[in-house]
Design a protein around this nucleic acid. Structure first.
Length: 269
DNA sequence: ATGGTAGCACGGCTA
């Protein structure tokens, strides 16, 4: 089963690029981020006409995640637990069943966190975007700790807005103080990995030069000035089923592209 | 510190 993640940066603007990729890549399941649409205004026919089931968790104008799948999606839940006041649509879960195994999938759009605002003592300013990012990551860790206790295949994918290591950026020094790379962000990501997840891409590909995002500005893609911030995390039960993990870099060169490209993993489910 | 580009939706925020 081919399982993909794609930050499409707006479903209305990306109808063409998204459907071209679906028809070409033929994922069995895909998690989308930044649909920037409510559930009511999402153009479902783009997905359903291609034989996919669709579950959305949308929001007007910003954020928003969705899962599409050829196989039925079971036990769908929306929203990241841990803060009933959080209005941002950034988390969706579902279970999909293959021939031999069921897989729990978490799709996420992790907060960007910029601008980083700190108090005089260096702690993130309460109510600021960076404090929200770190608090959201604490909630994610708590939810994944719960799911880990089930000891069944688990896949967590999406736009993490985290550059895990210096080799995951063309110019790491430019990101040193950025919310995507500064140490507290990377430490929070590492705490999630330490629950027992593997970075699926790094199980198959080593070294620098592998990116999933290039800014629209300053011809970043043409200069390959990118960062690797879209990830697929696998618990040990899912990692045992991993066959391949790749980044569809060519999608960034297409017509009216997203600033992200898809990443996908093939699992022997 | 600024400006560079894009999406949603039509003003300003988010990235």
């Amino acid at each position: 089963m081919k399982i993909a993640s794609f930050n499409i940066n707006g479903i209305k603007a990306r109808a063409g690029a998204l459907t071209r990729w679906l028809d070409d890549a033929q994922p069995d399941l895909a998690v989308l981020q930044e649909i920037k649409s409510t559930d009511e205004t999402f153009p479902r026919e783009l997905i359903e006409d291609r034989g996919y089931n669709l579950e959305t968790h949308g929001q007007k104008g910003f954020n928003g995640v969705a899962i599409l799948s050829k196989a039925p999606l079971e036990d769908v839940t929306r929203g990241l637990p841990g803060d009933d006041a959080d209005q941002q649509a950034r988390w969706i879960e579902a279970t999909v069943t293959g021939e031999r195994h069921a897989l729990r999938i978490c799709g996420l759009y992790l907060p960007n966190g910029n601008p980083v605002e700190l108090d005089d003592d260096g702690t993130p300013r309460a109510g600021g975007k960076y404090a929200y990012k770190l608090a959201w990551m604490d909630r994610m860790e708590a939810r994944l700790r719960e799911l880990m206790a089930q000891e069944t295949p688990l896949l967590v994918t999406g736009d993490f807005n985290i550059i895990p290591q210096a080799e995951d950026a063309a110019r790491p020094e430019a990101w040193r103080e950025d919310a995507l790379f500064r140490l507290p962000s990377r430490a929070a990501f590492r705490r999630v990995l330490n629950l027992g997840f593997a970075d699926a891409f790094r199980l198959r590909h080593a070294g620098p030069g592998h990116y999933t995002f290039w800014d629209y500005q300053a011809r970043a893609f043409e200069r390959n000035d990118g960062i690797r911030i879209d990830h697929v995390l696998l618990n040990a039960y899912a990692a045992d089923l991993l066959q391949e993990c790749r980044i569809d870099t060519d999608v960034r060169a297409g017509e009216k592209p997203s600033d992200h490209v898809p990443i996908w993993a093939e699992l022997a489910l």
